[in-house]
Design a protein around this nucleic acid. Structure first.
Length: 409
RNA sequence: GUGGCCGUAGCUCAGAUGGUUAGAGCGCCAGGUUGUGGCCCUGGAGGUCGGGGGUUCGAGUCCCCUCGGUCACCCCA
């Protein structure tokens, strides 16, 4: 083996990829049911988009970007997240009003890989643009929650906080900075540096939990509007039956958030990086990108982590019929039968190698086929032998009835 | 970027003090059952011992470097 997948990237192949497919399909149908259309945006963007949108002082922008210059000297970056792109597209297309859309795909961050963290990772997410109502926040939180629920993940908890509005934060920031400055000698080096640039980031620093435990909380310094918004979000979540916990130190690592921020955790997934997803409201973002004020709220779910948290799928593949060629002279007929089944909506396959009947049955079992259909001498009378792989029940039926026989299993 | 642990067949791993042709289980292929899987039996294929350099008569085994994996810090999905 000369070349391997780059550090921090993975290959996902069958049968493990079945869980990924299940997740992607569940998300796709969920997003559609909640009224989110599909958004496709580039995997790379102008570096400036993330610098301005995500924030110069964030970990992501200051040291985790996969940046490069193209042949014309443009400064580009592989997207570390998708929200900035979606908002950019909204602005670029001159959209107004509400836009609800969903996306899925790889994101890139140059980090040391560890459990739950890779350099290329996958996210599914939704963005609800142009809507300031707290009910939009509730809906977005619900989409992520239902996804985890539908995938059978147990013990999901939503962590919820409000950062308030930018104007609330001016005052709060001074309070926090004063509090932290008094204890600067106890802070980690990183946190001390952030004291001036972005004191909120200190709140979720693991190194400084002790110092930060008694720090003033954003929740105690919300303006009347932000406070009402937060109360409405809580009420909405309760009405939807979504369990949540108030998490006063949850600030999240992107600068564009205001008001609602949230994360999902699950009992079945414990690692240092344990957020299965997260998001929040980002009303300031559109203006940061040079556009008019456009409210928005969104979420991103970490596909890699969710797959790791999903219960093991008992059943194997979803193959309906595996066609066994018992008479090599009838290869063309076997191919016809497979085509016929596929056209009838039954998943069907066969082994194209010249292998023994026994070997073909083995493959049928391994592929998780519900039924094996033998193409042999009985084809001359227009019949094939079908066998239910689970219990060995066997019967010889007319060719035209194979699909129905299989569907009944 | 920093640190701990690890790197022998496709997978999971054995290979005390360096010593002849590197092993097992599982998986894979074939046969036993001339048209039938999951059990059993037999046989077979498959290994630059991560890579490079060094010590030595001799290195999977010792030393150095390097690459990779994994977990953690930082931070996040």
């Amino acid at each position: 083996m000369t070349t391997r997948a780059p550090k921090g990237t993975i290959d996902v192949l069958p049968p493990e990829s079945a869980a990924w497919r299940r997740l992607l399909r569940a998300f796709d149908s969920l997003a559609e049911r909640y009224g989110y259309g599909l958004a496709l945006t580039p995997l790379f963007e102008a570096t400036e988009l993330f610098a301005r949108g995500v924030g110069e002082e964030t970990e992501i922008v200051s040291k985790q970007m996969y940046s490069f210059t193209d042949k014309a000297g443009r400064a580009l970056t592989l997207r570390p997240e998708a929200t900035a792109s979606v908002v950019r597209a909204y602005l670029q297309e001159g959209r107004t009003g509400v836009l609800k859309c969903a996306y899925s795909g790889p994101m890139f961050r140059y980090e040391q890989p560890q459990a739950g963290r890779r350099r290329q990772f996958y996210q599914v997410g939704v963005e609800y643009l142009g809507e300031p109502s707290p009910d939009a926040d509730v809906e977005v939180v619900e989409v992520g929650y239902r996804l985890l629920e539908e995938l059978g993940i147990r013990g999901v908890m939503v962590l919820l906080n409000s950062l308030g509005d930018p104007e609330d934060r001016v005052e709060y920031r001074q309070l926090l900075r004063a509090y932290l400055a008094e204890r600067a000698d106890l802070l980690s080096e990183d946190s001390r540096r952030r004291l001036d640039t972005n004191p909120l980031r200190v709140l979720d620093s693991k190194a400084d939990v002790a110092v930060v435990a008694e720090a003033p909380a954003t929740l105690d310094h919300l303006g009347p509007e932000a406070a009402a918004h937060f109360a409405a979000v809580r009420l909405g979540l309760e009405r939807r039956g979504i369990p949540y916990e108030i998490a006063p130190r949850l600030v999240r690592g992107l600068d564009y958030y205001n008001r609602t921020v949230f994360e999902y955790q699950a009992r079945s997934y414990t690692a240092a990086q344990d957020a299965l997803g997260g998001g929040g409201r980002y009303d300031p973002l559109a203006e940061l990108l040079g556009g008019p004020p456009i409210p928005g709220v969104g979420l991103a779910m970490g596909v890699d982590r969710i797959v790791a948290a999903m219960p093991e799928e008992g059943g194997e593949g979803s193959l309906g019929v595996f066609v066994v060629l018992a008479d090599p002279g009838r290869r063309a007929e076997a191919l016809d039968l497979v085509a016929m089944l596929r056209a009838a909506g039954v998943s069907a396959d066969l082994d194209l190698g010249e292998r023994s009947v026994k070997a073909q049955f083995k493959v049928a079992g391994r592929r998780g086929a519900a039924v094996a259909a033998v193409v042999g001498a009985e084809w001359a009378e227009g019949r094939v032998t079908v066998r239910a792989m689970a219990d060995g029940e066997e019967e010889t039926v007319p060719i035209a009835e194979v699909a129905a026989w299989a569907q009944a299993r």
